[in-house]
Simulated scan of single mutants.
Amino acid sequence: MPTLGKEEAKGLQEVLASGMIATGEEVERFEREMSSYLGLRGAVAIASGTAALHLSLLTIGVKEGDEVIIPSFTCSALLNAVFHCRATPRIVDIDEETMNISLATTRKALTKRTAAIIIPHMFGNPVENMNGFLSLGPPVVEDCAQSLGATSCGRMTGTWGAVAMFSFYATKVITTGHGGMVASMDEKIIEQARDLRQYDKKEDYKVRYNFCMTDLQGRMGRIQMGKLPSFLKMREERAQLYDKYIKGLKGVALPPDKGIYYRYVVKISEGKLKRVLDQLQQEGIEVQRPVFRPLHQYLGLDGFEATERVHAEALSLPLYPRLEPEKVSSIALCLSKALEDSDSND
């Protein structure tokens, strides 16, 4: 659920009154503020997170015939971005504990055609062994759609790889409605992303896109960035409440104690997930599987044991800055009851 206030409404009204609602000064300021926050040399605002991921791959030279390694336990936007480049996705398994991409399975998937590795920091939980992935050789694209503000070994996610992408969809850490960002320390990557984002008024011809962000979105992003520290603090506080209420419940494993808690993902053991999920949804609680369907299932692939186990157990509980503490307590109580009911039905 997006966290919006009077500041966003006032800012949008000011942009509308200016008459400049396409890509202009507000977008440029948003880009500068984002790159400054990350400590990178540049950032390019894009129309969506998927488009940002697509351009990220293009800027590092991914092309037809190449392979791109991606984890199975993530959303299908990664598949789309790879296919948009006419490349071939190489799906790998995850680390069962962290639910992030596995270094071991990534290493085994490397071939002479590997052109990139996409590393999502799932649910705001940063990948901790980034140096291990960097040592493999192919360029790393960091998928920070869920991890803006998270740190890995003292460095912000998005500052490790050759290029990083961010998403500002309505339910992301900060929002511009739709929108995304490409960020990098490499100025050539930034120049390429900026060139590919807009197709008109170019001296030469090549396939380019209409992936521009509007000034309305740019102003909203700037306002949201100003609120980011408070957003992260409130997420952590609500996660700590969940820990307090849920710790000790039989058959429930808590999420890793790190990151920014974009989502609060628990694991429900002993084959009870569907019954618990259904009961909580019937009570009006917006719980869901954190990944709708693993990518290897879409492609009809076998052998992803860790992903299959996590998908069979993972449950995402509501967590957003405006979630009232009393609501956290209520959700935890409903979860406890759903588990008891599930036990009684066995």
Rank of each mutant, 00 (worst) to 15 (best):
P290G: 01
A17Q: 15
L317H: 00
K202V: 03
E7S: 14
G42L: 08
F211W: 03
Q146G: 13
R41M: 14
E28T: 12
H84D: 12
R219V: 09
A306K: 14
S18N: 05
S48N: 11
C212S: 11
Q192K: 15
R309P: 05
K188D: 14
R194F: 13
N100H: 08
A43P: 06
I331N: 00
L335S: 00
K267L: 15
T214N: 12
Y320P: 02
A81D: 02
L249W: 05
E128T: 14
V328Y: 00
T105A: 13
G180R: 05
G154A: 07
K6E: 12
D278W: 04
V182D: 00
I94L: 13
E340N: 10
V27T: 05
D195S: 11
A253M: 09
R289Y: 05
T214K: 13
K188P: 03
N345K: 11
Q281K: 15
S184W: 04
A115M: 01
E324Y: 11
R322C: 04
V182N: 00
V27P: 00
P318A: 06
V15L: 11
K337W: 06
T171V: 08
Y264F: 14
M122R: 14
T74F: 09
E324A: 13
R86K: 15
D343N: 14
L319C: 04
T159A: 11
E187V: 14
T111A: 07
K258P: 15
R29H: 05
C334M: 10
R90K: 11
Y245R: 06
D302P: 00
A145M: 01
G61A: 06
M185G: 12
E28V: 14
V82A: 13
S167C: 12
T74D: 06
C334H: 12
A104L: 07
Q13T: 08
Q282E: 15
D195Q: 03
F231C: 04
L136S: 02
N129E: 15
R155F: 05
R263P: 04
D346M: 10
G132W: 05
E31A: 14
G11P: 03
L196K: 01
E308W: 03
I94D: 00
K227I: 06
K244W: 08
G61L: 09
Q282A: 12
G24Q: 04
R107G: 00
